[in-house]
Simulated scan of single mutants.
Amino acid sequence: MKEILNYELWGNTVSEYLMALLILIVSVIIIQLIKKYVFKKIESTGTEGVLGTKFIIKITSRFAIPLFYLAALYLAFDFIQIPESATKVIKVIYLLIIVWIIIKFARAVIEFMINKYAEESGKEDTVRKFRPLLAFLNFTFYIIGILFILDNLGFHISTVIAGLGIGGIAIALAAQAILGDLFSYFVIYFDRPFELGDFIRVDDKAGVIERIGVKSTKIRSLSGELLVMSNSNLTNSRVHNFKQMFRRRIVFTIGVTYQTKPEQLEEIPKIIKQIIDEAENATFDRSHFFRYGDFSLDFETVFFVETNDYIKYMDIQQEINLKIYKELEKRGIEFAYPTRTLYMKSESKS
């Protein structure tokens, strides 16, 4: 028996192999016991939330447990001698696995926070809007992981970083417009100057937001065509968002003839006020006789429509206009229109 235990195979005795195997088995059993009893107990009595114990246990069991297994395997290998070439290969494999687990862990934490935010805010498209940011962060994590691996393998990271810096500048210059639109996308998402379904006007273009993409935003114009505008163009322009307008201020002018009696002129602001007060979702502000026009006596009126719906606004405006017309016609007050009076002077012949 002693001879069998002292028998050497690939530079190690059988007893050393058995000891390494025993360490590995004991470590696996301990990890399983911790996972089955300790984690389950904490998870059943833990709290919710991003920093709650349930979340920590879930993340730990998903990503930390594999690291525990790697540690157990590393501890077992410490009891046997491995050739230097095999040691380098194992080291590379260990680094790859550890970096991969850390990247997945960081991504899982960020995804959990985004999902939690979407759940609390009640907005279904939140996760979809964050996908470009997740892709960018994922790419950044992998770049950092690769640099970490190269550094541990003995490469001169400063030279690599310098090369990446020069290459990054060249790429940034070539993709300046694309990167500008990407960052503008995040500005639009976090600042929220408009959302899907909002009616906006940018310069001389107007329409309803149909889609907000990573590079461009699609707007359906009133005439039916689809407008595609870059995100950087939108963030650099003055955007009029009519969907976020809680009330509309309306100013209109009517003119009556110069033959209107003074008593009738005094009644006109009162008539207009009464009509607007009776209209639904309309708030009267003022009405005054404010100008002697070239062919009319002008009254200026201001009121508010308590809605951002354009159709409702037009319905209210039409209702008020018709009632004003009928009421002034009933009282014999005539609307003025451009007229010209010519006086002909005749000379008698002597």
Results as ranks from 00 to 15, higher is better:
L137N: 07
K330C: 04
L226C: 09
D198I: 03
V14Q: 03
I146E: 13
E266C: 01
T235M: 06
D78S: 13
Y292L: 13
I250T: 09
T126Y: 13
F242D: 06
I149K: 10
K261N: 12
D294A: 14
W10P: 00
T307Q: 02
I29K: 02
A108P: 05
E266L: 05
F290Y: 14
I23M: 10
T159E: 13
I103K: 05
I166H: 06
R107L: 15
A118P: 04
L227S: 01
L133W: 04
Q81Y: 11
Y343T: 12
K243N: 13
I271Q: 06
H240E: 09
L73C: 05
G167I: 10
K104D: 08
E195W: 08
A76I: 01
I34P: 01
E225L: 05
T13M: 07
K116A: 11
Q317K: 14
I311F: 08
I90A: 11
Y343N: 14
E120N: 13
D125G: 00
H288F: 12
T87I: 12
V214S: 05
K270Y: 09
I80E: 07
I166C: 09
Y7C: 07
T283I: 01
F304C: 08
Q317A: 11
I276A: 02
S232D: 15
D198Y: 06
K54T: 01
F304L: 10
V208S: 14
R286T: 09
S223F: 15
